[in-house]
């Protein structure tokens, strides 16, 4: 194997980074994230099939026994959508940890690129993956009897809230991915995220819970987000949930993004 007979290569001459390069680097990293999603069986399963299984489980197995005063499917679908988005986003943590703990980050750092595009690739891929999964779950829900009453404007609002939620969950998991030293620890985070929607109004109204849990469920971020999505899709009263939901998302992003960026910089400059 001779490496001498290579054809001529037109390599850009050395110069400081240019914006057009950063844009193309970002595109390459996003492409990488997308390929990862399709290759990584676990993440794909978590993001797409698990929520579908949960939807069927809640509608057909538990649904008959849970009385929420309306068709349970119409109550539970918004919760399933958020559960699905939360799961899918949490898998981002494992991808980030893998990048940071294997040699690949050194490869990227030795290239003339903006290294933060590595994280951008994960974030964008997570958005795409989870919006796709959300669409799929919605489609199946409609097929098995989910009847949203939303106007086109309500739909836009609901999708925007879900997208914001996915973005927030993705960044939270990026942060955990940067903190975790092993992929196992990072996937432990996914497990933790699993529990939050259960102790919210996602599957049962919170007033059916014991007082202590009720208090937590009412004031944790998932509940106002779910109430907002449910209100937009099903016409249930939203009240002040929408702005509490937005406030939660914005506040968490404002904390988590700077922490992640600090962690990333300190971990890539050892």
């Amino acid at each position: 194997m001779s490496v001498l007979d290579q054809t001529r290569v037109d390599r850009p001459s050395p110069r400081p980074r240019r914006l057009s390069w950063t844009v193309s680097d970002a595109a390459v990293m996003i492409d990488r994230g997308m390929r990862h999603t399709l290759r990584n069986g676990d993440a794909l399963f978590m993001s797409v099939f698990l929520p579908i299984m949960l939807l069927l489980l809640f509608v057909y197995v538990f649904g008959g026994a849970i009385d929420v005063g309306t068709g349970y499917i119409n109550y539970v679908v918004p919760g399933i959508i958020l559960l699905c988005a939360g799961f899918g986003a949490a898998t981002t943590a494992v991808g980030v940890t893998n990048d940071m703990t294997t040699g690949i980050i050194d490869r990227f750092r030795s290239l003339p690129i903006a290294t933060w595009t590595v994280v951008l690739g994960h974030v964008v891929a997570s958005m795409a993956r989870n919006l796709f999964a959300t669409g799929l779950v919605l489609g199946i829900a409609v097929a098995i009897g989910f009847r949203p009453t939303a106007s086109p404007l309500d739909w836009v609002g609901a999708i925007a809230v879900v997208a914001l939620f996915i973005l927030m969950m993705t960044w939270v998991s990026v942060m955990f991915g940067l903190i975790a030293k092993t992929a196992d620890a990072a996937s432990g985070f996914t497990f933790f995220i699993l529990f939050l929607p259960y102790v919210s109004s996602a599957f049962v109204p919170t007033d059916t819970m014991p007082a202590a849990l009720h208090g937590f469920a009412e004031h944790q971020p998932i509940t106002p987000i779910i109430e907002t999505v449910r209100g937009l899709l099903m016409g249930t009263p939203i009240g002040n949930s929408w702005w509490i939901a937005l406030l939660w998302c914005a506040a968490i992003l404002l904390v988590v993004v700077p922490i992640s960026s600090h962690l990333f910089r300190s971990r890539t400059r050892v």
């Binding site: 390599r11 850009p12 001459s13 110069r15 980074r17 003339p112």
Partner: peptide, 8 residues
Amino acid sequence: QADQVRSI
């Protein structure tokens, strides 16, 4: 000049 170095 890390970027210049990295490109070569």
